[in-house]
Simulated assay, not measured.
Amino acid sequence: MAEEQTPPAGPDLTKGVASADFNGATLLGHVGDQDVLLVRSGSEIFAIDAHCSHYHGPLADGLVVGNSIRCPWHHACFDLRTGEATRAPALNALSVWQVEHEGDRIFVRRKREQPKPRGKGPVDAPGKIVIVGGGAAGLAAADMLRRQDFRGSIVMLSSDAAPPVDRPNLSKDYLAGSAPEDWLPLRPDSFYAEAGIDLRLKSNATSIDTKARDVIIADGGAIPYDRLLLATGAEPVRLPIPGADQPHVHVLRTLA
């Protein structure tokens, strides 16, 4: 379903706003047809994309904490200097914009360049990290490890048959029929090979041998680890009413 185009919000920041008109923590405006949010943090003023990259939440209603802003919907967090998504469930960075001061007016006209990739990771980093769980938390951890230049092995064990999906969508737009299935994957299938993440689907971890540092999976195999992250998530709440155990009653957790 095509999204309806809405006009940009607030003042045109390319024409500037008076400093006196920006007396709160945030001010929503636009540059061309893009919504841009001015954010005050201490004595500094930043400009960042106005909507969360996870579910398009309005950051104008978010919480400014230090040099970061938090989405009011699902509490994703973004660095105001770089636009980096520093907290799940958001995985994609936002654009940041150049703020210019001319007299008593504040202007935003262009995007800033994204930070260059970091150098090599620390030499004392673990060689192999195993993540038990195929949901948003496990993926966010693996994704952040690569963004922080972890060069070792990453193995994700998932009992699901499909790669990580945006589970909140299962009970919202997708269920309502207003979102296509290709909105659901948190990352495209090609991402895992490109990022060097060994995603093992239908792999159910049954126990952990902490002495041998192995994760035991249902088929009897053992996967060694240097560091282990448990990100198994929660089970859906089931209705405690008669008939809830009928075969045509389903819980919303997997793509299937």
Rank of each mutant, 00 (worst) to 15 (best):
T26M: 03
R227Q: 13
R200Q: 02
K202M: 12
L201K: 01
A20F: 08
A125S: 05
D189R: 15
P180C: 00
A76R: 04
D182H: 15
V96D: 00
P8F: 12
K116Q: 09
S203E: 06
E113G: 01
P8L: 14
H75G: 11
Q98W: 10
A25N: 12
A2W: 13
I131A: 01
V130A: 04
S190I: 13
N67T: 07
D189T: 15
P180K: 05
P236V: 06
A93H: 00
G152Q: 00
G57N: 10
P247E: 01
S203R: 08
G24T: 15
R109V: 05
Q114V: 00
L59A: 07
P115M: 01
Q246E: 07
G220H: 05
N23P: 08
K172A: 10
R87D: 12
A60K: 15
P164Y: 01
K202T: 09
I69Y: 03
P164I: 07
I48Y: 08
R187I: 00
V99R: 02
A25H: 14
V249L: 01
D198H: 02
G134V: 10
A179G: 11
G134L: 09
R110N: 13
L37F: 04
D166L: 10
P122R: 01
V130Y: 04
A176E: 12
G103F: 02
T206F: 01
R238E: 06
G103T: 00
D189Y: 12
G138Q: 07
A256F: 04
G119M: 02
N204V: 13
R146Y: 03
L170W: 07
L170P: 05
N23V: 11
C77K: 09
